[in-house]
Design a protein around this nucleic acid. Structure first.
Length: 1092
RNA sequence: GGGCGAUUAGCUCAGUUGGUUAGAGCGCUUCUCUGAUAAGGAAGAGGUCCCAGGUUCGAAUCCUGGAUCGCCCA
């Protein structure tokens, strides 16, 4: 039964620390409710209670042995202050685990911290006032890394505080940390596994590189250093030795470059295979270039001799190399899909060591072996100077010359000129990246780098991705699927210091050994590392198994995304802590049922998780992913510290509370669409929802206290409250059940937004309809009303628990408290919920609509609702009429009329109009729909109404053919007559009789007087249950009205002694007020009556 | 340049498989109710559903093209 305490299924009884649950009658709340309670302060108290009762721990313990539901925490870095976007992801990481726990699953939540990486290093560099790798090495890698280790935790305390404050339940005490030796060992193990499959290799990566600092720059650093510069723009002839296809003797290819220093690295020329190329004659020579570029490059006088597609050039060779570098053979023309004809000549010189497109194109055409770094032709040394191979054809060496030296550029160009290969030179102004530290122009430069051959599992990753539930759905095939389709091998290594060391050792002969555990390293070298970080690990050497030469570790550390992507197993120190475990089939640990991060993680964590798990176990590491959008400020601007438009989480929490913060994120919009964040929006949620809920809860508490005696005796309602006789009770319970079903269904679909909005709607209905219409019964102490509202509130508190865990727990604890927290309860399931009565839900909707129309009619006539009227005339028939008749009392009271009368037809109130129902007839008539609609509109509405009512069908001729229409096919609409106070909508209208006779007027006055007395009671500071002595004097009409309705007056105002028209009595009362009613004056005097 | 998403009232957002006159909240104006609610209710003002084509009896919704904004990539 719904109200009875239940054992949560799938777990043991509560056996945590002793919990004090106040002994009390169940319909009575444990504590009084403060209507103006500040929510943040309330939340602090709830937090305290959670700590005392160990509610989080217990909520997990309780489900021991139950089916696991696995959550992975994507680790944040604690070296920066947490912001609002962290609150966003953390509350979404909280709501679903809470929900699933209440559904009976066991949800372990292990926290985690990402500790390595460039952001940490940069923070330390700033702190030390240094900015280059040389300076770090001068400072000492050991000391530098020690600083990094420290600074990782700079804001740990604030992270922990914020995590607790927002109600994010996660085990921070046993959080995994990517810097721990155990974690690193698991990462090593994974790399060794990948290596055993032959998927770890050394290749090249073309990176923005500062030749002076000798360091690669991150894209962020590159963005810091763009400057407008003037570079030479040179067009170079490449003669042909053996022209073929469309090419002829004496033709030359024409290429364009703004970086002449890359020409010695040339190994090919790329063309766009689909574009049109020409042989064009200008000044007696024939040049080959894209047709689109002829006029711009050769001038208007150039003569196009022949056109052909770029593909006709592919496979031909030109005379080369451009500079004498000792390269053998003639370089080829290849296809490049990146080649455009927007600038240059449509023929692009390819130097694979100096451009990413170049590198990929050369690799794709087999111009070097990507798995053998030595085969990539790179004549530039890491210090930015040419090596001994570069010379001109006169034999002059360029060895040792710095490639960005302007005088070198001049020499290279004049060398081309001397050989008659320079076609044109001018200047080119463009934005070019420079080193943000030293100002040197950056070069794109192929660095040796370690790769994981993820392309080997690309198809597998795509197949696995297909099984993942992405939210929003479009990420699967869109952003993420697209990324996977274009997957390239994972560049794993970083030439940095603070990171998981790459466990690769190599000897002078180039033999490679990948170490997969500390034990293995010990057995090879005899060394036991206390700290596996650099520089200690760098010192470990051991003899090569093949050649006996010493093996030394390569200097790189690994990409931090590999760290975090390894968390499914590394957080458990698998396989070292659980030898022999079948991890991939361990339902308690793998795969995750749920992960949740911001959308930028598609290329970050979501990818690294999938890649690693696919490499190791051929399977996805997660089943459902929720992607969160970006938080913008109220003007749609990205939040950033420099703009000063960030919203500090603490300010929001202090002012509005965690529930309000959470509620905003859950319900203001679908989370992946991003937010326009403002405190005002959060405050609105508080007013609209949290305060309304609190106020309903307060109302319950207030009247429960006032009726404590009656409720204490009403024990029969507690065993199990079935459907009540009262329509409002049944309706409220039915609506609650309906919303509970919907909320469960939506949360199962990871749609917290729709679920939350449904809860808000329910609370609104309870507050503004159920309670509003049931006040009298609460005033009278009707236990059924209390039991109903209590059931609804408790159900709401359970539905709301995953969303707003604080207010939900406060309400539960005070109204029920059987368990130590609402978070130990089961989520309301169908079997626990009150019975649905869809017919009544429907009827109530119609009744409310009728009331709305009636109030509209009153508004038109400008007659206050307090003034009773004799009659409301309602036009309705069939289902609607039955609904309103069933709920006539509610309609009557709400409209304040003495009776409601029904008229079946329009006859008395107006006329019908008849229209076709497009929805049913459209599919039937198709193209003939307009004729059908016309024919129906031409019918006599009264006849249609009669036929529909009496026959249930209607014959009609359309285009000379007979058709039978059902009542659903026609829509009857009211048209009101002139001069009536009528509100209408659809087939439905309400008219009010506006005659106010003396009797009605007296009753209206009586109600006004009661209202005035109630205000006086309130301003006199009386409690709602206080009895009073009351004296009314003044205008005779008012006194007369009070007399005529004295029973009503006495009952409403709790008067034990009523004096009318007695000025003397008024003089004795402490509290006197002058009231004006309908322009008449009334003196109200009252005092509290002593209890008998 | 490519991929993805968004565009509906002054603002924040709903809008189910295409169906009659496109909704809510906030804000504004007027009125009103209230012994729970700095709340609620009624009425009013406020819309080329980004634009242009197309499909259809019928398009905010489906298709094509374009614009603007955002994110990611190049």
């Amino acid at each position: 039964m719904f109200l009875s305490p239940r054992q949560p299924h799938g777990g043991r009884p509560y056996n945590g620390p002793p919990v004090t649950v106040p002994a009390r009658h169940q319909l009575l709340p444990a504590r009084e409710v403060d209507p103006r309670r500040a929510l943040p302060a309330m939340e602090q108290q709830v937090l305290e209670r959670w700590r005392e009762r160990e509610v989080f721990e217990e909520s997990v313990r309780l489900r021991a042995g139950a089916e696991p539901w696995v959550f992975y925490e994507g680790p944040p870095t604690a070296n920066g202050r947490p912001g609002s976007h962290h609150v966003l992801s953390r509350v979404f990481k909280d709501i679903y685990p809470r929900y699933k726990t209440m559904r009976g699953y066991q949800v372990q939540r292990k926290g985690g911290w990402d500790c390595h990486g460039l952001p940490v290093e940069i923070g330390v560099e700033k702190e030390l006032g240094i900015g280059s790798k040389a300076e770090i090495e001068d400072y000492g890698i050991d000391k530098f890394n020690a600083k990094c280790r420290e600074s990782v935790w700079a804001y740990l305390e604030e992270w922990n505080r914020l995590t607790e404050r927002i109600g994010f339940w996660i085990d921070l005490e046993h959080a995994y940390r990517t810097l721990d030796p155990e974690y690193i060992e698991s990462v090593w193990w994974a790399l060794a596994q990948i290596n055993e499959r032959g998927l770890l290799y050394e290749g090249h990566k073309v990176v923005p590189y500062c030749p002076r600092c000798g360091t690669a720059l991150s894209s962020h650093e590159v963005a810091l250093g763009y400057r407008d510069v003037v570079d030479p723009s040179v067009y170079v002839r490449l003669p042909l030795h053996f022209p073929a296809g469309p090419l002829q003797d004496g033709d030359a290819l024409l290429i364009w470059t703004t970086t002449p220093w890359t020409l010695p690295g040339n190994v090919a020329v790329a063309v766009a295979p689909g574009a049109t190329y020409t042989r064009a004659r200008v000044n007696g020579e024939v040049l080959v270039l894209a047709e689109d570029r002829v006029a711009a490059v050769l001038g208007e006088d150039a003569q196009v001799l022949e056109r052909f597609p770029g593909s006709a050039l592919v496979g031909q060779h030109y005379a080369g190399p451009i500079f004498d570098t000792g390269q053998a053979g003639e370089p080829p023309i290849i296809a490049g899909d990146f080649v455009t004809t927007d600038d240059g000549t449509g023929l692009v010189h390819i130097a694979p060591a100096f451009g990413e497109d170049d590198y990929e194109a050369a690799k794709a055409n087999g111009l070097f072996d990507p798995h053998d770094p030595k085969t990539l032709f790179n004549p530039v040394k890491p210090d930015g100077t040419y090596d001994e191979r570069v010379r001109n054809y006169a034999g002059r060496s360029y060895e040792g010359r710095f490639v960005k030296d302007p005088s070198l550029t001049k020499e290279l160009i004049s060398d081309l000129e001397e050989r008659n290969q320079l076609f044109l030179k001018n200047n080119y102004e463009h934005s070019y990246p420079h080193c943000w530290r030293c100002g040197t122009p950056l070069i794109y430069y192929a660095k040796a780098s370690w790769y994981i051959k993820t392309t080997a599992v690309r198809e597998r990753m795509l197949a696995e991705n297909d099984t993942v539930g992405w939210h929003p759905e479009h990420v699967k095939l869109g952003r993420f699927g697209d990324w996977l389709k274009n997957n390239v091998d994972w560049a794993l290594s970083r030439e940095r210091y603070w990171g998981t060391p790459l466990p690769v050792w190599r000897c002078a002969a180039g033999h490679v050994h990948v170490v997969g555990s500390f034990a293995e390293l010990h057995s090879l070298s005899g060394v036991t590392l206390k700290d596996p970080h650099r520089p200690f690990v760098d010192e470990v050497r051991f003899p090569c198994a093949q050649c006996e030469q010493p093996m030394r570790r390569v200097p790189e550390v690994i990409d931090v995304w590999f760290d975090s992507g390894a968390m499914p197993f590394a957080q458990h120190h698998h396989p070292f802590a659980d030898p022999g475990a079948d991890f991939a089939n361990d339902r308690e640990r793998f795969p995750a049922d749920f992960v949740c991060e911001a959308q930028d993680q598609t290329r970050g964590w979501f990818y690294s998780l999938l890649a690693i798990s696919t490499l190791l176990w051929d399977t996805t590491p997660y089943r459902n992913v929720v992607c969160l959008g970006l938080i913008l400020d109220a003007d749609g601007q990205k939040m950033s510290k420099s703009k000063g438009n960030t919203v500090e989480p603490w300010a929001v929490l202090d002012a509005h509370g965690a529930d309000a913060f959470r509620w905003y994120f859950f319900t203001s919009k679908q989370p992946w669409d991003g937010y326009r964040f403002s405190e005002e929006a959060i405050a609105e949620g508080v007013r609209q929802f949290l305060k309304q809920l609190w106020s309903t809860y307060f109302f319950y508490g207030l009247y429960a206290k006032a009726n404590a005696d009656a409720l204490t005796q009403a024990t029969d309602l507690l065993g199990g409250v079935g459907p009540r006789d009262d329509d409002l009770d049944v309706w409220a319970l039915s609506r609650t059940a309906a919303v509970a079903e919907l909320v469960g269904e939506r949360l199962d679909a990871y749609d917290a937004t729709t679920a939350g909005r449904a809860i808000a709607e329910l609370v609104d209905e309870l507050s503004n309809w159920y309670v509003r219409r049931s006040r009298r019964r609460f005033w009278d102490g009707d236990p059924a009303a209390f039991a109903t509202l209590r059931t609804c509130l408790l159900t709401v508190s359970k539905l709301l628990a995953p969303f707003c865990p604080f207010i939900a727990d406060e309400i539960y604890d005070n109204l029920d408290g059987t368990l130590a927290s609402v978070h130990l309860c089961d989520f309301p399931a169908a079997a626990d919920l009150p019975t649905r009565d869809p017919e009544l839900e429907d009827a109530m909707a119609i009744a409310r609509e009728t009331v709305r129309l009636g109030l509209g009619a009153r508004g038109q006539a400008k007659i206050k609702v307090r003034q009773p009227l004799s009659e409301a005339v309602i036009v309705a028939s069939g289902r609607e009429r039955a609904a309103i008749e069933r709920l006539a009392d509610i309609v009557r009271e709400e409209l304040n009329v003495r009776q409601v009368r029904f008229v079946a037809g329009a006859d008395e109130l107006g006329e019908y109009e008849v229209k076709a129902n497009y929805r049913t007839l459209g599919p039937r008539f198709g193209k003939h729909m307009p004729q059908a609609a016309d024919a129906i509109a031409a019918l006599d509405p009264a006849h249609v109404a009669k036929m529909v009512r009496e026959e249930g069908q209607l014959g009609i001729a359309i285009d000379g053919r007979d058709h039978t229409l059902t009542p659903a096919d026609v829509l009857l609409t009211m048209r009101p007559p002139e001069g009536y106070s009528v509100e209408r909508e659809g087939a439905h209208a309400v008219a009010l009789d506006l005659t106010i006779d003396a009797d009605l007027l007296r009753e209206g006055h009586a109600r006004e007087i009661v209202h005035a007395v109630q205000s006086a009671r309130k301003s006199a500071g009386l409690q709602i249950e206080d009895r009073i002595e009351l004296s009314l004097s003044g205008d005779p009409a008012l006194v007369e009205a009070a007399e005529a309705h004295s029973d009503y007056l006495i009952g409403e105002t709790l008067t034990v002694d009523l004096r009318l028209g007695d000025d003397g009595a008024a003089a004795d009362m402490e509290h006197r007020e002058q009231a004006a009613i309908d322009g008449l004056s009334l003196l109200i005097a009252l005092r509290r009556a002593e209890p008998a």
